[in-house]
Design a protein around this nucleic acid. Structure first.
Lengths: 188, 188
DNA sequence: AGCCGTAGAGAACGGTCGTTCTCGATATGA
DNA sequence: TCATATCGAGAACGACCGTTCTCTACGGCT
């Protein structure tokens, strides 16, 4: 095993840091996790963490931003291969059902972050809004291909399913939302 | 003005405490508000606050519980007088639109509390779930009177509108959800 | 009037937070 | 080889948290 090049090590450490922080923040809440817990979970010295991100808020923003990219890429990879436009819209809700059934699912990280920090951190609020706008626009684009003017209700049903599954802990909202969308799209 | 009877004073003080705590918690987040800020805003000595509620968590639960009663009573008072079952369901979304337009609207207090404390306080989680279940059941009952099997999508559209309006700060989701429900109910 | 239980105001306590500093060890380069 | 720069480990710092304690003052009763 060759010794990693410094730059590569730097990137690996940064990823390990973001991985550890994301897992802790999502599972227990951002404010409930101290920087020392991030240090212990990532294995990186505190000094290095603060060289990657000057403040905890910067770390939180980086975690949310990277999760946004991964979350939307995963959704797109699942949905885009479906060729029929109406089936493609329904696939969104199949993907949501899989997500809700994941062990440790605890709702939408951005809705949770908004509840925690939306009032006190303008930067977090902006990040949350950016994620939701991107998701909205992507959904609207897929719905647009069906030629049916139901982009807003499809988006609201998705959001309602996400928040309801997150609070109740049950995956049923994905099925309910999917059935409603199928009806709106005229899929029997 | 007659001097208030001690019992009455006790109730007034308790209300003032809950009023102050609710306003602060909702506007700035629960964890962002220290007990000293509650003391300053309520005008009550800290000792008396802790005689009303032994811990901050108890105060939070009381605030959420009282808000739940008030919130659902307000919705019911707005919706119940509408006699036509389908118009009554639509009235839910008119009420939501009014709520979203209120100054200082910052989303659903229970969704926000879930994001802040759902992972660390089992009691808060239970209170949030109780509120959402009560809202769900009330909506389902009103929808049931229309004889149409659309209780779940109506509820999910309401939740989606609430969470989207809370994050975006715009009241439009109430209109979008209302239009979708009108279509599902066959109201032209 | 004089005692006593209770009140309010705010200091104090133990703990935790985000962030910075110290300090000994290690690596680097001429 | 030796000076120098950099690093990790963790103590330290100042601020703030939820909660409790101290101390003074007052009110009601005999």
């Amino acid at each position: 095993m060759p010794a990693p090049i410094p730059e590569e090590q730097h990137r690996m450490d940064r990823d390990a840091l973001l991985d550890a922080a994301e897992r802790l923040f999502y599972a227990r809440g951002i404010q409930a996790i101290g920087m020392d817990a991030v240090r212990a979970a990532s294995g990186l010295p505190l000094k290095r963490i603060y060289r990657f991100f000057a403040t905890k808020e910067d770390l939180v923003l980086a975690v949310l931003n990277r999760r946004d990219q991964r979350w939307r890429a995963s959704l797109t990879a699942y949905v885009e291969p479906v060729t029929d436009p109406r089936e493609r819209v329904l696939a969104i809700f199949d993907w949501l059902a899989d997500w809700f059934a994941e062990p440790g699912f605890r709702g939408c990280a951005w809705i949770n972050a908004h509840g925690e920090l939306g009032a006190s951190s303008a930067a977090v609020l902006a990040e949350v809004r950016s994620h939701k706008r991107a998701f909205h626009d992507q959904v609207a684009q897929w719905v647009h291909a069906t030629q049916l003017p139901v982009a807003e209700p499809v988006f609201l049903l998705a959001e309602g399913a996400i928040v309801t599954a997150g609070i109740s802990g049950e995956p049923a909202p994905a099925r309910h939302a999917r059935a409603a969308v199928a009806s709106m799209l005229g899929v029997s």
